Amino acid sequence: MASSSSNKSCLYCKDSSSDCFSNGWKLRNGEFAQLCNRCSHLYNTGRFCVTFHSKENGWRNCNSCGKFVHCGCIMSLGEYSLSDFHGVICTDCSRTECISPESESLIPLFEKVLTASDTGTQLGRFIIPKEHAEDHFPEVNDPQGIPMSVLDTAGNEWDLSFRYWIHVTSKMYVLKGLRNFIILNNLQAGDTVAFCARESDRKFVMDVRKSG
Rank of each mutant, 00 (worst) to 15 (best):
K176I: 08
D159W: 08
A133D: 11
L175N: 03
G145A: 11
V150E: 08
I146F: 06
S161E: 01
I166V: 15
D135A: 15
R163N: 15
E134A: 04
I166D: 10
I166E: 12
H167M: 10
P143D: 02
Y173K: 10
D135E: 14
V168A: 05
E139N: 13
G155A: 03
R163L: 13
M148N: 07
V140F: 05
V168E: 07
K171T: 02
L151H: 09
S149N: 09
G155T: 03
D142N: 07
V174L: 05
N156F: 13
H136R: 06
L151V: 00
K176F: 05
A154Y: 12
Y173P: 10
Y173M: 11
I146S: 07
K176M: 09
E139V: 14
G155P: 01
H167Y: 14
I146W: 06
S149E: 11
D142Q: 01
R163P: 03
P147D: 03
V150D: 07
S170R: 11
E134G: 03
V168T: 05
F162S: 13
T169I: 01
W158H: 05
Y164V: 12
S161A: 02
Y173H: 13
E134N: 04
L151Q: 07
L151R: 09
V168W: 01
K171Q: 06
D152L: 06
S161C: 01
K171E: 04
G155M: 01
T169V: 01
N156P: 02
G145E: 10
Q144Y: 09
A154L: 15
V174P: 03
D159T: 10
D159I: 10
S149H: 06
D135P: 01
V168L: 04
V140A: 06
N141C: 04
S149D: 09
V174Q: 08
S161W: 00
M148E: 13
Y164G: 15
L175P: 02
V168S: 05
N156K: 15
W158Q: 02
E157G: 12
V140E: 06
E157H: 12
P147E: 02
L151C: 07
D152G: 05
V174Y: 02
L175F: 01
G145P: 11
P147I: 03
